[in-house]
Design a protein around this nucleic acid. Structure first.
Lengths: 292, 292
DNA sequence: CTGCACTATGAATCGCTAA
DNA sequence: GTTAGCGATTCATAGTGCA
C-alpha cells in the first residue's frame, strides 16, 4: 500500500478546514509557546494564547477520528517571576470544547538549557498532554514495550550517568523490591515519563523536537497506513518520522521557509524507504503537495 | 540553640489558627488526595477539593513568613477515564487568594508500582508545586548542588571555541574570571526534575513520602533554627527530617493514630541527634506536645 | 570498527538601562 | 510609572573527526 505526505502553507485555523471530518488517527504537534519563537512565528501574548488556540483545537477535534488521539507538547513560560497559567486555562477550555484530557506525560529533557537565577533552577521538563475525542481510543501498548531481560539496565539507561551518581543510594534499593514481579516476563510497559535529550547537532534549522518523541507516540497510537497530522510542522520532524514508519502524514505551517524546507526533504525521505513509487500529482489545491 | 517540635491533633483549618502570623519559613506537605486514602482520611470528593483546601491555604498564607516557601505535593487522580482538573483549579484559586505560583517541580518516582491498564501507563510522577507569599524569598541553592557530569573533566583541558566566543561577549575582565570559575567548579545546580524512589518501608502511613523529598526542600529553603510546618504530617516524615537537620518543626494531623505515632517517635529522633537536652514541658494547650 | 576527544547549541530567565 | 532591549549566567548531549 502507498503512503502519502501532504503539506500546506498557511494558517492552521484555515487550512484545517480543507480536511474531512474524522480522517486523522493521530495529531502530534508542538505549537509556538506564548511569546516565544518570536522571530519566526511573531509570538502570541500569554493573555491571548487560549483565545488564539481554541479555533484551531476546534478544527482538530473535527478532523480527528473518534478512536484517535491528540498529543500536545507545550510548556508555560515564566512571566514576572512566576509560572504563567495559560496552559492550565487551555486545558480547562478544551475540555469545555469537548475534548477529554486523558493523560499528561512528562518529557524530561536531559540536556536542558543552562542558566542560573536567584529564584529558580533550570527548567528541564515539558508537558505532553494527551487529549481524546472519545473515552475509547486505539492504543497499541505492546509496541512501545521495553525488553525485559535487561529491564534494570534499560531503566538505568534512561537516567544520565550523572543522575546515577547523584541518586546512587536509591537506585538499587528500588529495583530489589519489584524485580521478583517481573522475572517471569520478557517485556515491560513504560511509564508516563519520557527521558529524551533535545536535538543539539548542527543541522540547518534544527528542531527542538527529537525524532524519538513523535516516533514513540506514532508507535503507541497508530498502525501502518494510518494518518498523522502536525498542524505546526516546523522543520517537519513529525512528518519525516511518520513517512519512515509507513504512516500517511499531513503537515501545515505558516512560515514559507519551513514549508519549502519540508517540500525539499520529502523526496529524500521517500528514497530512504527504498520502495519504488509511481510519480503522480494529485489534483489538490496548489498549496498542497502530495508525494507518492 | 535548641530545636522544638510541636505536634497538634485536629483539623488543620482550626489548629493553624493557633499559630502566629509570619512565623514559618517552609511548609512542606502532601495533603490527602481527592477521594483517595478513604480508609484514613475519609476522602474528599474531587469536586469539593478546592473548596475544602482553600480555608487551609488561607491560614498557611497567614502563618508563612514573607520570605518563606510553600511546597505542595499533589497529583490529580483519574476520574471516569480522564485526569481530574482539581489541581489546576486549585492553583488558579490560590493565585486569587494571594499566592504566587513560582514553579512546578516534577517528582519522578523511579520505582512506581507495576500495573497495566488498557488505556494508560503507570503513573510515575507527581507535582511539587512551589508557592510563595512574595516574589523575593530565601533560596539557598548552593546547598543542593550535585556533582558535575564526567564531561566536565574534558572541558577543563580545553574550552571550546563556542564557549570562548560566548564568554567573549562580555568585557575582558569578566572573561578571565569566568574561566577560573569553571576550572575550579566540580558541582552543578540541579534542575526542576527530582529523581527519587518512593519509600516502601513505611507501611503504617498510606502516603509514601521518601525522606529525601522534604530533606531536599528543607536544605534548599531553610537554614538551621528555621521553622518547618507540615499541616498533614501523617507518619511525621517531614518533622523527623526537620529535627535531624536542626530545624524547628510543627505538625498537624486529624488522625489520632498518626498523632500518637509521631508523639512516640519524637523521643528516638531526639536521641538520634545525640545532644543532651533538658526535660521541660512547655505550657501549651494539651493537644500540643513540645519536645526539647 | 571501536573509542576517545572536541564542538556546537538547545522553546531560558533575571536585572539593569534606555526610551 | 512602563516597557523593551540586551548582557550575564550556565549544563549536558549527540554528532563528527581522527587515532
Amino acid at each position: 500500500m502507498e503512503i502519502f505526505t501532504d503539506i500546506y502553507l498557511g494558517d492552521s485555523k484555515e487550512k484545517l478546514q480543507l480536511l474531512p471530518d474524522n480522517s486523522v488517527d493521530l495529531i502530534v504537534t508542538s505549537p509556538p509557546y506564548a511569546d516565544q519563537r518570536k522571530s519566526t512565528y511573531g509570538g502570541i501574548h500569554p493573555d491571548k494564547y487560549v483565545e488564539w488556540f481554541l479555533p484551531i483545537s476546534e478544527q482538530l477535534l473535527r478532523v480527528l477520528k473518534p478512536t484517535g488521539t491528540f498529543i500536545l507538547n507545550i510548556k508555560e513560560k515564566v512571566v514576572a517571576g512566576e509560572r504563567s497559567t495559560y496552559v492550565m486555562e487551555l486545558i480547562l477550555a478544551m475540555r469545555k470544547q469537548g475534548w477529554y484530557w486523558t493523560e499528561e506525560f512528562i518529557w524530561h529533557k536531559k540536556n536542558s538549557y543552562p542558566g542560573k537565577w536567584p529564584n529558580r533552577f533550570r527548567d528541564s521538563w515539558e508537558r505532553l498532554l494527551q487529549f481524546n475525542k472519545d473515552k475509547k481510543f486505539h492504543m497499541y501498548q505492546e509496541e512501545v514495550m521495553v525488553p525485559m531481560g535487561d529491564w534494570a539496565k534499560n531503566r538505568l539507561k534512561n537516567l544520565s550517568d550523572t543522575d546515577k551518581i547523584r541518586d546512587n543510594s536509591k537506585v538499587g534499593s528500588g529495583f530489589g523490591k519489584n524485580i521478583s514481579n517481573w522475572l517471569t516476563r520478557d517485556k515491560a510497559f513504560p511509564t508516563n515519563v519520557l527521558h529524551l535529550a533535545t536535538e543539539c547537532n548542527n543541522k540547518n534549522h534544527s528542531a527542538a523536537f527529537p525524532e524519538e518523541l513523535p516516533e514513540w507516540f506514532i508507535k503507541l497510537f497508530t498502525k501502518q497506513n494510518d494518518t498523522v497530522l502536525d498542524p505546526f510542522m516546523g522543520s517537519g520532524t513529525t512528518l519525516k518520522v511518520a513517512s519512515r514508519m509507513k504512516r500517511n502524514s499531513i503537515g501545515i505551517d505558516i512560515v514559507p521557509e519551513y514549508y519549502e524546507m519540508v517540500k525539499k526533504h520529502i523526496k529524500p525521505v521517500e528514497l530512504y524507504i527504498l520502495e519504488p513509487k509511481p510519480k503522480y500529482e494529485k489534483s489538490k489545491p496548489e498549496r498542497s503537495i502530495t508525494v507518492r
